[in-house]
Deep mutational scan, measured.
Amino acid sequence: NLYFQGLKYMVPGARVTRGLDWKWRDQDGSPQGEGTVTGELHNGWIDVTWDAGGSNSYRMGAEGKFDLKLAP
Score class of each variant (00 low, 15 high):
residue 37 V to G: 00
residue 60 M to A: 06
residue 57 S to L: 14
residue 43 N to R: 10
residue 53 G to L: 03
residue 57 S to Y: 09
residue 56 N to W: 12
residue 29 G to S: 06
residue 23 K to L: 07
residue 28 D to E: 06
residue 22 W to G: 04
residue 49 T to N: 09
residue 25 R to D: 14
residue 67 D to W: 02
residue 52 A to I: 07
residue 68 L to P: 01
residue 15 R to S: 02
residue 44 G to A: 02
residue 39 G to V: 05
residue 41 L to Y: 10
residue 7 L to G: 08
residue 24 W to E: 06
residue 41 L to V: 09
residue 16 V to G: 02
residue 4 F to T: 11
residue 58 Y to C: 05
residue 8 K to S: 10
residue 66 F to V: 05
residue 6 G to Y: 15
residue 57 S to H: 11
residue 41 L to K: 05
residue 20 L to D: 13
residue 19 G to Y: 05
residue 39 G to D: 07
residue 68 L to Y: 00
residue 30 S to W: 11
residue 36 T to D: 01
residue 4 F to C: 15
residue 26 D to P: 05
residue 6 G to K: 12
residue 14 A to G: 04
residue 38 T to R: 08
residue 27 Q to A: 08
residue 66 F to M: 07
residue 26 D to C: 12
residue 46 I to S: 00
residue 71 A to K: 09
residue 8 K to T: 08
residue 58 Y to T: 02
residue 67 D to M: 02
residue 64 G to N: 14
residue 24 W to Y: 11
residue 19 G to A: 07
residue 48 V to K: 00
residue 40 E to P: 13
residue 38 T to W: 05
residue 29 G to P: 05
residue 17 T to E: 10
residue 56 N to I: 04
residue 59 R to L: 03
residue 58 Y to V: 05
residue 53 G to V: 02
residue 56 N to F: 15
residue 64 G to R: 05
residue 38 T to M: 11
residue 15 R to N: 01
residue 21 D to G: 04
residue 54 G to W: 09
residue 65 K to A: 13
residue 44 G to Y: 02
residue 4 F to P: 15
residue 61 G to E: 01
residue 66 F to I: 06
residue 51 D to N: 01
residue 19 G to H: 05
residue 56 N to Q: 08
residue 26 D to I: 06
residue 71 A to G: 07
residue 48 V to C: 02
residue 37 V to L: 07
residue 13 G to Q: 04
residue 13 G to V: 03
residue 26 D to K: 06
residue 29 G to I: 06
residue 27 Q to V: 06
residue 70 L to A: 07
residue 19 G to Q: 05
residue 16 V to Y: 02
residue 30 S to P: 10
residue 39 G to P: 01
residue 30 S to T: 14
residue 28 D to G: 06
residue 68 L to W: 01
residue 43 N to E: 10
residue 54 G to N: 10
residue 56 N to Y: 14
residue 19 G to V: 07
residue 67 D to I: 01
residue 10 M to D: 01
residue 69 K to V: 13
residue 69 K to C: 15
residue 58 Y to L: 03
residue 16 V to C: 03
residue 38 T to A: 08
residue 27 Q to D: 10
residue 8 K to E: 15
residue 9 Y to F: 11
residue 25 R to W: 13
residue 14 A to E: 06
residue 34 E to V: 14
residue 24 W to C: 07
residue 42 H to P: 02
residue 42 H to V: 14
residue 5 Q to C: 15
residue 45 W to M: 06
residue 51 D to S: 03
residue 8 K to M: 11
residue 56 N to K: 07
residue 14 A to R: 07
residue 51 D to L: 04
residue 36 T to P: 02
residue 36 T to C: 11
residue 50 W to D: 00
residue 43 N to A: 10
residue 45 W to C: 04
residue 31 P to G: 08
residue 71 A to Q: 09
residue 26 D to T: 08
residue 54 G to M: 11
residue 63 E to S: 10
residue 30 S to Y: 12
residue 31 P to F: 08
residue 5 Q to M: 09
residue 13 G to P: 03
residue 40 E to M: 12
residue 32 Q to P: 14
residue 37 V to C: 08
residue 59 R to C: 02
residue 52 A to D: 09
residue 57 S to Q: 12
residue 15 R to Y: 02
residue 43 N to C: 15
residue 47 D to S: 12
residue 34 E to I: 14
residue 3 Y to P: 15
residue 24 W to F: 06
residue 12 P to S: 09
residue 50 W to C: 00
residue 44 G to T: 00
residue 16 V to H: 01
residue 5 Q to L: 10
residue 52 A to L: 08
residue 71 A to E: 07
residue 51 D to I: 03
residue 41 L to G: 06
residue 60 M to K: 00
residue 42 H to C: 15
residue 72 P to V: 12
residue 58 Y to R: 01
residue 22 W to S: 04
residue 64 G to D: 09
residue 10 M to Q: 03
residue 22 W to N: 04
residue 12 P to L: 13
residue 46 I to N: 00
residue 19 G to P: 03
residue 43 N to W: 09
residue 5 Q to W: 13
residue 13 G to M: 05
residue 5 Q to G: 09
residue 34 E to C: 15
